[in-house]
Design a protein around this nucleic acid. Structure first.
Length: 527
RNA sequence: GGUCCUGUGGUGCAGUUUGGAGUGCACGCCGGCCUGUCAAGCCGGAGGUCGCGAGUUCAAAUCUCGUCAGGACCGCCA
């Protein structure tokens, strides 16, 4: 708002002022249609300086992007910018909408402890030394998982919480040490019930920010992997992986005598990708683990231009052309390898070549369902839990636990938005016989299970309802709704990727006396 | 632990490829002028360890090595 002042004042940017005056129409010829307040002004102003200000370390303006280091060091100035004001207000709207939605759906908000017990396995935990029990540690929870399951045993059959979670793992654009989740658990539910609860809440939050209520699609895990090569597909663009294994089932071309062949079609890409770019793509594919990358340009007459074209029969070329839906000018990229490898490589290339910016395009929510129970094997040959060890196997697959564990589907599901994993959940095991079989499959002995999770397993002996739940990553949801590709932009005081807070300087050494109080002594810094 | 990108007055950039005096642009800052302006305008001025340390060279912002910081990614995140 423009203020008209009669007498000179020594006013600088970022001063804090109290201005008293009268709002009035601007005089003829001074209106400015480009400003929201361009029709009016405050006249006959009295100005009082409440606080002077040094020039800020960087311009407080959305027009100029300051260096991250400087922004973080002076975060309180950075937060004055329109962009950050907007982002944090979007976050508040998301937060409020989620709470409102869960309350309306009859859920009860219950807080769980931040000082929790170590549960070795999973993410590395932050330790909190105990003063009253010197030498012993609490940990900060990586999630309220076990606490909320105990609440189910306790009879709070619909629990939710906007929970802070802490994981001492390396930071990324979508990962901070501490992050917030809409954490949910309910009793007597099936996956459909969870999709309903969470879908409602997330749609409410999205509508609160964008004004439009999104649909949420469904995709089984195996289909996501076959069509998109990832378990968190970005459905905003196609370029799907085409199955070509059958096409080359009898091929004489050695490189295509593989378990799986798939391809992606870059529409109109044959012009854009000259030899340099194709070489770069091949290097990229190799760095992703492929043995190689076969490229083909689709010529005007439909014939294929490729270093390997001469090894392929006319029938194979025709079938390939048809399966890929090729048009003249397209670029085809093929990978042959083990199925999982093919999916990974082409899934990543698809993202490299086609993924739109986060700020673009519709919100394509999708439930990825029927995740496998286990994901590969550890060094000892035991299957590794894909979700967590309390995940209920798919009812049809329970009998495979011993015979073919890697084929067991679980009742676990993810919510994905535009290629970001927003969160995951599952139906939990509430029967001790099934839990015992899962632990056995994982190679966890009874003693070990009792030592780690005894208090949970003990609770289950006193009548545990069937239950399941979910957790939605608030930082990620908010970032996408705000059009930001880094969750730091929706967190008031984030950490740098080194884990340091450039504003406060944390973490810092503390006095040896303070350490002694909690029974600790520091080692000399590693050399 | 690894790969890659970035680091130049307070801020944002150009200069680095092909070594030749700290050269340039915009913003800000200081002084002055002007002013119904709204990213105000005009004139003048100050402000630099080219992240840091070695090396190559007659000569390094520029080339090499190391190191620090920020960022992206891999590992990691049940």
């Amino acid at each position: 708002m423009q203020c008209v002042v009669d007498h000179a004042h020594d006013l600088r940017s970022e001063y804090v002022l109290r201005i008293t005056g009268t709002v009035r129409q601007r005089p003829e010829g001074t209106a400015n249609a480009n400003l929201p307040t361009g029709e009016v002004e405050v006249g006959d102003c009295e100005v009082e300086v409440l606080s002077t200000a040094e020039p800020p370390a960087f311009p407080i303006s959305d027009r100029i992007e300051a260096d991250e280091t400087v922004r973080m060091k002076y975060r309180y100035l950075d937060l004055r910018r329109d962009r950050m004001q907007r982002n944090l207000r979007i976050r508040a709207r998301v937060n409020a909408a989620l709470r409102r939605s869960m309350e309306q759906q009859g859920f009860v908000e219950i807080e769980t402890p931040l000082l929790w017990t170590p549960t070795p396995e999973g993410a590395r935990e932050f330790l909190v030394p105990s003063r009253l029990q010197p030498g012993s540690q609490y940990v900060l929870p990586q999630s309220p998982q076990i606490a909320k399951q105990l609440l189910m045993v306790a009879g709070f059959d619909r629990y939710y919480q906007i929970a802070r979670c802490l994981r001492d793992e390396d930071l990324r654009a979508d990962r901070q040490f501490e992050f917030s989740q809409l954490d949910v658990e309910a009793s007597f539910v099936e996956p459909e019930d969870i999709y309903g609860f969470i879908g409602e809440a997330v749609a409410d939050a999205t509508e609160a920010v964008t004004g439009t209520r999104p649909d949420i699609e469904r995709l089984p895990y195996s289909e996501a992997m076959e069509r998109f090569g990832v378990d968190k597909p970005d459905l905003r663009f196609a370029m799907e992986l085409t199955e070509l294994t059958e096409v080359f089932s009898a091929t004489g071309f050695k490189a295509f005598q593989a378990q799986c062949i798939k391809g992606i079609r870059v529409a109109g890409g044959s012009q854009e990708f000259g030899r340099n770019k194709l070489d770069a793509l091949t290097d990229r594919a190799k760095s992703l683990g492929a043995k190689g990358l076969v490229w083909m340009r689709v010529k005007a007459g439909g014939e294929l231009e490729s270093p390997v074209a001469k090894f392929l029969s006319a029938g194979e070329q025709q079938a390939l052309h048809k399966e890929m839906g090729a048009h003249p000018g397209d670029l085809l990229l093929l990978v042959a390898d083990e199925r999982r490898r093919v999916q990974e490589v082409l899934g990543q290339l698809r993202l490299d070549l086609g993924k739109p910016p986060v700020s673009e395009g519709p919100y394509r929510f999708v439930w990825v369902t029927d995740f496998p129970m286990f994901d590969g094997r550890d060094d000892a040959g035991h299957p590794v839990a894909a979700h967590h060890p309390f995940t209920m196997p798919h009812p049809d697959d329970v009998d495979l636990l011993d015979s073919d564990p890697l084929a067991v589907r679980s009742q676990a599901y993810d919510l994905v938005l535009n290629g970001w994993e927003l969160g995951s959940g599952s139906i939990r095991i509430h029967r001790s016989d099934i839990q015992a079989r899962v632990f056995r499959a994982l190679g966890v002995s009874d003693e070990e299970a009792a030592a780690r999770f005894g208090f949970l397993l003990g609770a289950f002996r006193y009548g545990a309802p069937p239950h399941g739940g979910f957790a939605v990553g608030l930082d990620r949801l908010t970032a996408i709704l705000a059009g930001e590709d880094n969750i730091r932009e929706v967190i008031a005081f984030p950490k740098a990727s080194s884990g340091v807070d450039p504003m406060t300087g944390a973490p810092k050494p503390v006095d040896a006396r303070v350490l002694a109080d909690v029974g600790l002594r520091t080692l000399p810094p590693p050399t």
